[in-house]
Simulated scan of single mutants.
Amino acid sequence: MPLSVPKSVNRDMSFTEGQLKALFKEHDANGDGRLSKEEIKKAFQQLGSRFPGWRVRRSLHHADSNGDGSIGLDELDELVKYVGKFGYSIQ
């Protein structure tokens, strides 16, 4: 069941950790269990980020523990922690 988050949400909205994880998982367009730079960018655009490309680079810096240039589902917790630090509230 898809997460009901508007196409562009206000950064002041609060999300549960589970909602943010679901939002990012929904953007795994090819279903490979990894979020590419473009998939992460689309997620940040949906969250209403003003600079989604920059957010992607910073999120990879914080969450891509194996350095492969993408975020695996095993690294999703770190991505959600990063998102919570920069204006996207986690309840």
Rank of each mutant, 00 (worst) to 15 (best):
A63V: 02
K37C: 05
K85C: 13
G84Q: 05
L73P: 13
S14N: 10
F44R: 03
R50H: 11
F51W: 14
V56Q: 00
H27N: 14
Y88C: 07
L73T: 14
Q91L: 09
K85V: 13
Q45R: 08
I90G: 04
D64E: 04
G48S: 00
G48D: 01
F86R: 13
D77Q: 06
E17Q: 15
G33T: 08
V80F: 00
S8R: 15
Q19L: 11
D64M: 06
R55Q: 12
K37D: 09
K21C: 03
S4A: 14
E78W: 08
F24I: 01
Q45D: 05
Q19G: 09
I71E: 06
I40P: 03
E26L: 00
S8W: 12
Q46K: 11
I71R: 09
H62Y: 13
R58L: 12
W54D: 12
R34K: 14
L23R: 04
S8F: 11
L47P: 02
K37S: 09
E78P: 01
S8G: 11
R57T: 11
V83N: 00
A63Y: 07
Q19N: 07
F24K: 02
K25Q: 11
K37F: 01
S65K: 15
S89R: 15
W54E: 14
W54R: 12
R50C: 05
V56L: 01
D32H: 08
I40R: 10
F15K: 05
D68W: 04
M1S: 10
M13P: 03
D12E: 15
E38W: 09
H62F: 14
S14M: 05
K25T: 08
V5Y: 07
E38Y: 07
A43C: 02
G87Y: 02
G48I: 03
L60W: 06
K21P: 03
G69Q: 03
L23P: 00
H61Y: 12
L60D: 04
L35G: 00
V80T: 02
S89D: 14
H27V: 09
I71L: 09
L76K: 12
Y82Q: 04
K41Q: 11
P6S: 13
S4E: 13
L73I: 15
T16C: 06
N10S: 12
A29R: 13
S89A: 15
D28P: 02
D12G: 15
L79Y: 02
K42V: 08
S8P: 10
G84F: 07
K37P: 07
L60Q: 00
K21F: 04
E39V: 02
D32K: 06
S70H: 08
E39K: 02
